[in-house]
Design a protein around this nucleic acid. Sequence first.
DNA 1: ACCTATCTATCCTGTACCTT
DNA 2: AAGGTACAGGATAGATAGGT
Length: 329
Amino acid sequence: MEKLANQFVKYVSEVAGQPATWRPRASEHLPLYLTQQYTQCEITIGRRSFLGILLADSASFRPATFEKHLRQIMVGATDVEGYCLVAEALPAYLRQRLVERKIPFVVPGQQLYWPELGLAVQARKKKQTPVAVAIVSPATQAVLICALTGGIPAPITPKSLAEKLGYTTMTMTRALDEIEANALGQVERNGRERLLNFPAGRRALWPAALPYLRNPVRETVRIRESQLLLKLRIQAGETALGGLSMLVPPKEPVYALGAQAWKKIASRVEQIPVEDTGTCRVQLWCYPPELFARDGQVDCFSLYLSLRAEEDARVEAALEEMMEKMAWS
DNA sequence: ACCTATCTATCCTGTACCTT
DNA sequence: AAGGTACAGGATAGATAGGT
């Protein structure tokens, strides 16, 4: 708190061109849930005094909730002419919402928005520090699956990745950020170019990436098989596993479809509630399965991810059998 | 020309509030 | 209480613009 106070005084004095001060302030008249979330202080800028509201935890912060709390806090603050929210850090979308709601706030060193003072500044350039994520985005997962299936034998730029996988370079830039932040690959700079490669090889990538990968299946729908064009029938789920192991495939075939392909046909096909003769199940994937499909079947890494939560012992055994036999061929 | 910070569009989900 | 609806917030990725 001391540190934030010092940063605040320094930053606001600089930006406002007037001396700013900061003093702690008691807040015992407030209910516990408010004192836990916010710390109050007295701020003076030049001759004007304000109530400073320090945010304890920016992760759970919601502008709309804050406005509700604010009304309660301001009841006991008749001696100041206004208030200002102070936070150590706030994500861009929250700062944007605060501006929309005209809530004055200061993130020392980064941004100050304070209409009452006639001030609004934002740091020109922010050093971007890629943050490690728990689960990588679908686009990043597509890049990793591409690498696992041998599609990235040499260092590659975001641009050529975008061409290869059908995403924008922007999305591939973010994918490289995530891969770098989670140490799943090597990202090197060669002049202006940013190059991604996997020096440890794809066999080492699989166990490293596994904790960060998601089930590619977003949703499963049932339609008449005849309504799915032959070229869209990429076998997935237990149907694909049946073809790659000793598992007996289900009677009702399972296919995988990307979001775009589904969008094209969704309005024309009828969804069937229960299994019937001539029906099939279609998994709607969060990345296009056709990018990595071979011989009309989804890639075995995505297949593994789509079935790893399966409790059935036969499926589990078949998955292991498939990974041993197929993955690196 | 290429990379990336920021803005924007779109879709999805959870929640509060309303109706039945 | 159950179900419906509207809205805010969150996730994802495309578009734009500015920097090197």
